[in-house]
């Protein structure tokens, strides 16, 4: 589904991603963990080219997105993204947030988009909030709307960039539950997260990143139970204690 080959990313002189190669299979749920500044978010943002890629290749569903001839707008329709700061459109209601891209980008009829939007809102448990504005919602509700908005484009992959980091603790669970359900339905997911419990429970594989490299990758029980690298051990001892 996604192949990353020798991906490098620099901001000016600072090389944030040094040499990342990884394959992600269809229906796989991969969590990316690591200390802050390790390049996790940058890695994720390179996968839909919100960051320009300095060198290397990223192939999404057979399309090399580093090729300038590839239509990124088409590729991005297949790759949903959920942000730490939600980034809902504040001037639009919840349902308008959800239908905007399907109607304007895909050309779905408004009626059809609303029907689908309502069913997505039901799925994330917010059908009664369709006509609310984002500033009337709690953080957890906003993030669930953001997930529904991304799903409205019927993406093949979902990217989550620390989706619960900006939430009050009591709202983390409701967002993680929606994500678990999505994982169980077979969505391909890449999740940058600090929620070790979620990573353990849901993911097929964990990538541990530090200093711009993937230091270690393994199934969660292996990576958490029997970490191989010193840096992985040091990080886990901090977050698990």
């Amino acid at each position: 589904m996604i192949q990353v080959k020798h991906l490098k990313k620099s901001f000016g002189k600072v090389e944030v991603l040094k040499d990342i190669s990884v394959d992600i299979k269809e229906k796989e749920v991969v969590c990316v963990i690591g200390p802050s500044g390790s390049g996790k978010s940058t890695f994720l943002r390179c996968l839909n080219k919100l960051e320009e890629i300095t060198s290397g290749q990223v192939i999404i569903d057979g399309q090399d997105i580093t090729d300038p001839h590839v239509d990124m707008n088409k590729v991005r329709q297949e790759v949903g993204m959920v942000f730490q700061q939600f980034n809902l459109f504040p001037h639009k209601t919840v349902i308008e947030n959800i239908i905007l891209a399907p109607v304007k980008v895909k050309g779905v009829s408004e009626k059809e988009a609303i029907e689908r939007g309502i069913s997505l809102l039901k799925k994330v448990g917010l059908s009664e909030k369709a006509d609310s504005y984002p500033d009337e919602l709690s953080g957890g509700q906003k993030q669930r709307v953001a997930i529904a908005r991304a799903l409205a484009m019927n993406p093949k992959v979902m990217l989550f960039d620390e989706p619960t980091s900006a939430l009050d603790p009591e709202m983390v669970g409701e967002v993680l539950n929606v994500m678990k359900e999505l994982a169980n339905e077979g969505m391909t997911m890449i999740v940058v997260t600090h929620e070790i419990g979620f990573a353990k429970e849901v993911s097929d594989r964990i990538l541990f990143m530090d200093g711009g490299y993937i230091i270690e990758e393994n199934a969660p029980e292996e990576l958490f139970g029997n970490p191989q690298h010193e840096r992985t051990k040091a990080f886990l001892s901090k977050v698990l204690s």
Binding site: N48, L50, N73, K74, R76, Q77, V79, G80, M81, F83, Q85, N87, L88, F89, L100, A101, K104, V105, K106, A146, R149, A150, M153
Partner: peptide, 15 residues
């Protein structure tokens, strides 16, 4: 306007 707005719009496939 916060740059997250542009990013969210682009991530949905908008030009």
């Amino acid at each position: 306007i916060d740059k997250g707005q542009m990013e969210a719009a682009r991530s949905l496939g908008m030009s």
